[in-house]
Design a binder for these strands. Structure first.
Lengths: 377, 377
DNA sequence: TACGCCAGTGAATCACACC
DNA sequence: TGGTGTGATTCACTGGCGT
């Protein structure tokens, strides 16, 4: 059973006819549906499996609004063992349909990615890279109990350790990345705004829709035009939409008919236009911010150092966490700079100075040392 | 057997004597050595285990110079199963010596981190975050067959799922990061230059020496001054050096005497930061609790006073016992604050305001008056 | 039309002391 | 041990509405 696409391109009579499952969504359990495909028939797998989040109570923002948690039934597993068994089953099914030179991508978070990586290695896949998706606009940590969970991890692996010449479009990626080798960290925003599929009530159709820019990089790097990309957890079809846009074929498997229907109409609306898309997806690696604490880590300022204003009139002492202390008041370089001047705001980088011999230099000079070091590398 | 440190601070006679293993390097296999430590004796573990790299043949740069790969004997394992058994053994040993409220950090790359993460979850550790170290100056990929491997992954986990109040210096990290909460991606350079330990021939002493900046952030976030940090793969002692600098105790285990010797002289040369500079920013949670009734006792609020929300729309009257009354309903400042807004919860301290002239100020300001008085006394 | 303000929201394993 | 009550806690971005 499958969801048929409309307006599938006609196959020219002199070519091999395309298999019936191409550019389709197979409706059903992914392991069962994959059995219907011939072995060694797809070039790349991209999989976004359930993460097995283990949430307890509801979480509220500081303003008391409720966080819309991912509590769908498809994300519930009884135990790590059950999750491992599930993972093993779908990875084995994917391995069978992958061509020997094929590669596989899986995305996950710390809840599940270690399990997936271990199973995948045990099955004989060979990890080529792990790639981290750095979210430029992640949800904050509302209770102040952990670091902001600001990234997800993708594993990129070949089918076998001795895989024959898997596809990696090194030069294309380098050109894409302003003539620098593409790194294993990709900074991209979440899928929001007009790209996010909404239902008639304005509610999101799928709780974990991935941004097209992510799939764009994945497919650009590891597939060629005309390749077949399998997504065993198709959801609302981001993989299919980007595949079509880039002139790749897709096969999706999805259990939920509502997701599959949304995916199919979404993909039908896609215009293949790779050249234009390249422009919109391309982005420089965001220049990392350098917080004041970085100067302490780098040993450029030691805890206990006294900073002064340019004239030496106001002073403050640097603490290990990068906060300043003066007259019993503590805060960031900016807050304390404002405080000692009786102002609302202050640029601490230019206000505070450190002693160098008899001279005083702004701490901004030290930040420049860090930036120069990063640029030189 | 251990490597003794020089100039260990004398323990004052009236204090509990420090255990003999504190601020020492235990020379030997980490599982065997850890058996000598009492259980529940360390606050945090930082582990940089062997990576299980499986390199075949030598890797050459485009100019044919040989890359100095990590191919030391200690980094070779026969199989994933052997690596998993090794991982299980040292993680179990660490778990025994960890305090119930302790946390553990492990750093690794895609070669081993999935194995480590899985074993750690299976042993009952509870992952709090995975943190990626983004290398600002990674080694390029010379063959052009993969993405530049530009990051490593750290797992931060509590000893148990229901761990009691593990240490996370949220406010300190926020101050460190220019008043934004710290994210799970940290951009830091590799350990190079003067920080990198070299032997008499200018060769690096250890192949995978970690930058002190990385440990600075780890220890600042998850330990307090005086805590004990265990590093079961001590190497050249980055963990010990930063621990000493930040006023934390360390225990190291290292199998290789050359590494241990290099570590000990390195640590002896470290100058600890002054105690005063080790004080870090604390949030309201660290402040003593003041019940609302205390404001009435202190005469800062009189019974019968009318409180309002910030905009003056909702009102309530203070009763002599510190409860509020509005529309016939009575309860605590929090309960009534929630009630008038139709919410489940509310922080009454910030919700309710008192009149001062024409302005309204939150009752939290009055609480601060009491706290300031306590601090002055 | 431009701009400012306010409300809404995103894969989240998000208290703890006290009785 | 569990139940109860206090009260701590958010970043980047989008979209709608009002001036």
């Amino acid at each position: 059973m499958s969801v048929k696409r409309k307006g599938a391109p006609a196959t020219a009579p002199h070519q091999n006819p395309e298999p019936a499952w191409l550019d389709q969504i197979l409706l059903g359990d992914c392991v069962a549906e994959l059995e219907k495909l011939p072995s060694a028939s797809v070039d790349v797998v991209f999989a976004d499996p359930p993460y097995n989040l283990q949430l307890e109570g509801a979480l509220h923002r500081p303003d008391q609004s409720k966080v819309d948690a991912v509590d769908d039934a498809w994300d519930q597993f009884e135990s790590f063992a059950a999750y491992d068994a599930f993972t093993r089953a779908w990875l084995m099914a994917c391995r069978r349909v992958l061509k020997p030179s094929g590669t596989l991508w899986v995305i996950g978070s710390y809840h599940n990615i270690f399990r997936v990586g271990t199973v995948l290695q045990d099955l004989g896949f060979w990890v080529l890279n792990d790639v981290v998706w750095l979210k430029s606009n992640p949800m904050p940590n509302f209770r102040g109990k952990r670091f902001t969970n600001a990234h997800e991890t993708m594993i990129w692996a070949s089918r076998d350790r001795k895989a024959k010449s898997y596809t990696f479009n090194y030069e294309a990626l380098k050109a894409f990345n302003d003539d620098l080798q593409m790194r294993s960290d990709w900074t991209l925003p979440l899928c929001t705004g007009g790209e996010r599929l909404k239902d008639g009530n304005g509610q999101k159709v799928h709780p974990t829709q991935k941004p097209e820019a992510l799939l764009y990089r994945v497919l650009l790097s590891s597939t060629n035009p005309g390749d077949v990309v399998l997504d065993p957890f198709f959801g609302t079809g981001t993989t299919g939409a980007v595949a079509k846009r880039l002139g790749r074929h897709f096969v999706g498997v999805e259990r939920d008919r509502a997701y599959a229907d949304a995916a199919m109409s979404r993909i039908d609306a896609v215009e293949p236009a790779p050249d234009m898309a390249l422009e919109t997806t391309k982005g420089k690696r965001a220049q990392p911010r350098i917080p004041f604490g970085r100067l302490l880590e780098a040993g450029l300022i030691a805890p206990g150092t006294e900073l002064t204003c340019a004239k030496g009139r106001n002073t403050a002492v640097v603490r290990a966490d990068g906060s300043l202390e003066t007259g019993g008041v503590t805060g960031s370089i900016h807050k304390i700079g404002a405080h000692v001047q009786g102002l609302d705001a202050c640029n601490g980088w230019t206000y505070w100075h450190f002693a160098e011999g008899k001279a005083r230099r702004p701490i901004d000079d030290l930040r420049q040392v860090i930036r120069d070091g990063m640029a030189a590398a």
